[in-house]
Amino acid sequence: MRTIAFACALLSLLIQAGAALAGGLAYPGYDHLRQYISELGATGANTGPAVSLAFMASGALLTGFWLMCAGLFPKSPPLLVGFGLNALNGLGLFFGGVFRCDFQCSMASPSKAAMLHELLGGLGYLAGIIGVFVIGLAMRSRPAGRGLFNVALGCGVLAAVAFGLLDPAIEFDGAAQRVVELSLAVWTVAVALCVRRPAGAVG
């Protein structure tokens, strides 16, 4: 189970990063600093179908990883809540591929799919960030959890600040989204490495 969980986390992050990098190269004039990743999967984009499929695959794997963590880590209400919140972040990514935003993620006259994309994606980010803090605090008092608490604090604060900058009125909102994604990715890797330890060493 530990090997499967670790593989799910790693594969999810690789798929997501690959989709963003390859999609950006295939999308004419795409600017990673000024455009959201979702624009690569938008309706009408030449990269839309492939990137949306990558979002769904990555989100499903990420959700599975966090749900498996709930069974691999010590059983406690805070940890279960935290892993559940992080799983919601995975679901937000999954449904971000199911419900694609309109071309260039314009919200001028949004379709129902675009509104769901914004709602579920935003809630997924928010749940994931809160989940980082919940798990970090739950692990702080455990002998093997101090390091994970420090990672949670750093990644959580950085992601929270960047999340507040996800505003189309801000020129570099694309860069802010990358900071959120990178922070959550580092957090996922940290937890995945804990999962690789022998049973009993994660708490």
Results as ranks from 00 to 15, higher is better:
residue 94 F to E: 01
residue 95 F to K: 05
residue 95 F to P: 00
residue 95 F to R: 03
residue 96 G to P: 01
residue 98 V to I: 14
residue 98 V to M: 09
residue 99 F to G: 01
residue 99 F to L: 12
residue 99 F to P: 00
residue 99 F to S: 01
residue 100 R to Y: 05
residue 100 R to I: 02
residue 102 D to W: 07
residue 102 D to H: 09
residue 103 F to T: 09
residue 103 F to L: 15
residue 104 Q to R: 15
residue 105 C to E: 06
residue 105 C to M: 10
residue 106 S to V: 10
residue 108 A to N: 11
residue 108 A to E: 15
residue 109 S to F: 12
residue 109 S to N: 15
residue 110 P to K: 08
residue 112 K to S: 14
residue 112 K to L: 15
residue 112 K to H: 11
residue 113 A to M: 06
residue 113 A to C: 07
residue 113 A to K: 05
residue 114 A to R: 01
residue 115 M to E: 13
residue 115 M to I: 14
residue 115 M to Y: 07
residue 116 L to A: 10
residue 116 L to Y: 14
residue 118 E to F: 12
residue 120 L to Y: 07
residue 120 L to I: 14
residue 122 G to K: 06
residue 123 L to I: 13
residue 124 G to Q: 04
residue 124 G to S: 07
residue 126 L to N: 08
residue 128 G to Q: 01
residue 129 I to P: 00
residue 130 I to L: 15
residue 130 I to M: 11
residue 131 G to K: 02
residue 134 V to R: 00
residue 135 I to T: 11
residue 136 G to T: 03
residue 136 G to E: 01
residue 136 G to W: 00
residue 136 G to L: 04
residue 137 L to C: 09
residue 137 L to W: 11
residue 138 A to R: 02
residue 138 A to D: 05
residue 138 A to S: 12
residue 141 S to I: 06
residue 141 S to E: 12
residue 142 R to D: 08
residue 142 R to K: 15
residue 143 P to I: 09
residue 143 P to T: 10
residue 144 A to W: 03
residue 144 A to D: 11
residue 145 G to R: 02
residue 145 G to W: 00
residue 146 R to H: 13
residue 146 R to G: 10
residue 146 R to A: 14
residue 146 R to N: 08
residue 148 L to P: 03
residue 149 F to H: 05
residue 149 F to S: 05
residue 149 F to C: 06
residue 150 N to R: 14
residue 150 N to Q: 13
residue 152 A to F: 03
residue 152 A to V: 06
residue 153 L to A: 12
residue 155 C to Y: 08
residue 155 C to K: 03
residue 156 G to V: 07
residue 156 G to P: 02
residue 156 G to W: 02
residue 157 V to D: 06
residue 158 L to Q: 04
residue 161 V to H: 11
residue 161 V to C: 11
residue 161 V to S: 08
residue 161 V to D: 11
residue 161 V to L: 15
residue 162 A to P: 00
residue 163 F to L: 15
residue 163 F to M: 13
residue 164 G to F: 10
residue 167 D to S: 14
residue 167 D to M: 13
residue 168 P to I: 10
residue 169 A to I: 06
residue 169 A to C: 04
residue 170 I to G: 06
residue 171 E to R: 14
residue 171 E to T: 14
residue 172 F to D: 10
residue 174 G to W: 03
